[in-house]
Design a protein around this nucleic acid. Sequence first.
DNA 1: CCAGGGTGCTTGCAAATGCAAGCGGGCTGC
DNA 2: GCAGCCCGCTTGCATTTGCAAGCACCCTGG
Lengths: 139, 139
Amino acid sequence: MARIDTTGLGDFIRQQRDQAEMSLRQLAKAADVSNPYLSQVERGLRRPSAEILGRIASGLRISAESLYVRAGFLHERTGDEAVTEAIAADQTLTERQRATLLQIYGAFQAENRAHADRADTDDAGDPGDTDHPNREEPR
Amino acid sequence: MARIDTTGLGDFIRQQRDQAEMSLRQLAKAADVSNPYLSQVERGLRRPSAEILGRIASGLRISAESLYVRAGFLHERTGDEAVTEAIAADQTLTERQRATLLQIYGAFQAENRAHADRADTDDAGDPGDTDHPNREEPR
DNA sequence: CCAGGGTGCTTGCAAATGCAAGCGGGCTGC
DNA sequence: GCAGCCCGCTTGCATTTGCAAGCACCCTGG
């Protein structure tokens, strides 16, 4: 009983597979992975390599990143981390432009924090009533 | 025989290691990976698992993502994709703030494009792969 | 000269990955 | 009944990962 215990990853995969209403063999074929191995992965008996993980992700039509995060190969990034990192890493911007963006971003966050602090009493100004679900559609 | 040909990943790691002025053994220790194995990885003889890859990334003080991209486990996201996605997905901002940031970002890019256009005509769209891998700035 | 430490590389070997083949069981239709 | 086709799971087994130990080489310095 080599209890490898990658549970969470396997559960997640199975959950996604159920949600997509695919059988284990269907996903195995779509992901180009043998069905016995996929079965073992889903039950946490085996720890799939990154390549297999990527294929499973593509078979599930989800981003590989989410699986890597689930597998613990990539640490989850909260929204603000993602933004600051992405901006800092963007080589298409000049250093000054990056700094400007980061500054504005920080100001927005500070503003929101201040708002949140005195949330209940004073709610003048920003009518944050409806946030339109814009085109960001997870596929 | 088994020419695995993960070249590009190994070269990238060695290049980053050189740039950080670390010896192979130093990086091996920092990454908690055996030095023979790291040597083989750098020469493209072995294909490291995601876990080892993550450890190497941490030893190099670079993001794990860049290594995954290099290893072909994650498709590359150009800087602007990453930024726009991150901003659009950030739920700590109001819709208006997101729109503002995206607008500013777009303006910066347009500005840079204009600059690049009248800078020189030869450099076509090729994103130079070896220039600046996204090295995170220590804050 | 040669101990001591540095560099990277080669060599077996335990352990893990990933698969082909096969197993038991549940349906449907002939 | 039973042939055919699904479902998921178990079982060997070739291949690969990743490491401990050891090799050859280059510097310093006592």
